[in-house]
């Protein structure tokens, strides 16, 4: 297990709002990690910093020793929290686009997953339902052979049956060297497949532990602990 991602005193301020408060975080390779926190806690800010869509106000983030840039983007597969694809394109066109753009894209795998979920590759994106659009986005991301997968709310709009498929897709494409960072509110659906959980609140990291440690220490599921910690 080697270090894959490191945040050092990472701070992000929007005008006078502190979104991330000097956080220090190290993630190892070969893990599935849940990034859990209430709305507005800083999850998406952290994810955008990892992907170089925001620049830190202070501190730094390193992926395999490199600051976010061209090099890290070829190693990080990112699923944003809202769609960024051209809606006039067909699924097939988008797959070609991805295959062209990313060296590590596995086209066959993408078509296999589409078939399993019953999505026709000739449909235009704008005619797909919200849930199916999300599935396409996730398929595109999981079809890459990346070192780090960053999934921002991957299952929020997907029906429960397809959720199971999404979860098994994540397990299936798990590669012992890759790490998956998942931000979500639907903790009870995914906690079974997590190695570690990170609790984040008001831009601070409250806890970063292995799931089995959390359960052993609290005699509760991560979902129950979350509800207790973030009770309002």
């Amino acid at each position: 297990m080697s270090e894959l991602l490191r945040c050092e005193n990472l701070t992000k301020t929007y005008h006078n709002t502190k979104a991330l408060n000097s956080i220090n975080l190290t993630l190892e390779s070969g893990k599935i990690i849940g990034l859990l926190g209430p709305n507005g806690s800083g999850k998406t800010t952290l994810i955008k910093l990892i992907n170089g869509l925001l620049t830190p106000t202070e501190g730094k983030v390193l992926i395999n020793g490199n600051a976010p840039g061209v090099k890290t983007k070829s190693q990080v597969a990112y699923l944003p929290d809202n769609s960024y694809l051209n809606s006039w394109m067909t699924v097939k066109q988008i797959i070609n686009y991805f295959a062209d753009f990313f060296e590590d894209f596995r086209e066959e795998l993408a078509y296999e997953m589409l078939k399993k979920l019953g999505i026709n590759a000739d449909t235009k994106l704008k005619t797909l339902s919200k849930g199916n659009k999300e599935k396409v986005c996730l398929i595109l991301v999981m079809s890459r052979n990346a070192k780090l997968y960053v999934l921002d709310e991957p299952i929020a709009g997907v029906d429960p049956a397809a959720r199971d498929y999404v979860i098994s897709t994540i397990i299936n494409n798990y590669n012992p060297d890759a790490t998956v960072l998942i931000s979500t509110h639907l903790i009870s659906d995914i906690e079974q497949i997590l190695d570690e959980a990170i609790f984040i609140q008001h831009g601070d990291i409250l806890l970063h532990k292995s799931i089995d440690e959390i359960r052993a220490e609290n005699n509760k599921s991560v979902d129950e602990l979350f509800r207790e910690v973030f009770r309002w």
Binding site: I167, S168, I171, Q192, I193, D195, D212
Partner: peptide, 11 residues
């Protein structure tokens, strides 16, 4: 086994 049990392969 991980897929059947629905858990993480590391576990």
């Amino acid at each position: 086994t991980a897929l059947l049990a629905g858990v993480n392969p590391n576990t």
